[in-house]
Design a protein around this nucleic acid. Structure first.
Length: 197
DNA sequence: CGGCCGATTATCT
DNA sequence: GATAATCGGCCGG
């Protein structure tokens, strides 16, 4: 296993978002490994990006995005959901990559216990708030260093996903965000067709 | 399987 | 005081 280090995150958010696909998101909960392959990400970069929380400027909530890369930005939304991001880019420039979906590969039983509702329909981790529930990640992980295994949360390198298997689209959920930010193709996901499982 | 709707609260104006 | 980088339940087909 090789844990992704600072230099991986210290790049433009678009590059990090692309390269996180296929990597293994690892969470250690009470000594057990929970892990999943990252299938979907979104990039948020700069104060100019009106889809980014940083477009409102530096506030207590967004200050993590302005800090050094490789840390977790975990924020609360819709009154009930935690979403996990990784801070990217140089120290001082606000940027982050939202992790939107993973494919579970380790600790699936514990993940199922972590989910309050039985998601009979689809997977437990095919949405940004579902995945934080499954991995038991909440606001207490905000600002933690993903490059340190003491954080109990990090990302490991895997086989890279070839370009042919990667799709892009506009970012999800930016309902009141003006163009071009609403539909700029900063969402990256692995084409299910091109996946072997 | 797809669309609509209510839940629920930190954060910013 | 309004809004939100969403989810799950309930409806109809």
């Amino acid at each position: 296993m090789s844990v992704l280090q600072r230099n991986f995150y210290q790049r433009p958010a678009l590059d990090v978002a692309r390269d996180l696909l296929g990597c293994r998101l690892v969470r250690v909960q009470s000594g057990q490994r929970l892990a999943g392959i990252i299938l979907e990400t979104e990039a948020y970069q700069g104060e100019d990006d009106l889809g980014s929380h940083a477009s409102a400027g530096k506030t207590p909530r967004t200050s993590v995005m302005y800090g050094p890369p490789g840390h977790a930005y975990v924020y609360f939304t819709y009154g009930m959901h935690w979403l996990l991001n990784t801070v990217t880019g140089d120290n001082g420039s606000p940027a982050a990559v939202l992790i939107r979906a993973i494919h579970p590969v380790e600790g699936q039983e514990l993940m199922a216990e972590n989910r309050p509702y039985l998601a009979h329909k689809r997977g437990w981790t095919d949405g940004p708030a579902k995945l934080t529930q499954a991995l038991s990640v909440d606001g207490s992980f905000n600002t933690l260093d993903l490059c340190s295994q003491e954080s109990q949360l990090w990302v490991e390198a895997e086989q890279p996903i070839p370009d042919e298997a990667i799709q892009r689209s506009g970012r999800i959920g930016l309902n009141s965000v003006p163009e071009p930010w609403r539909s700029i193709p900063w969402r990256f996901y692995v084409d299910p067709e091109a996946l072997d499982e």
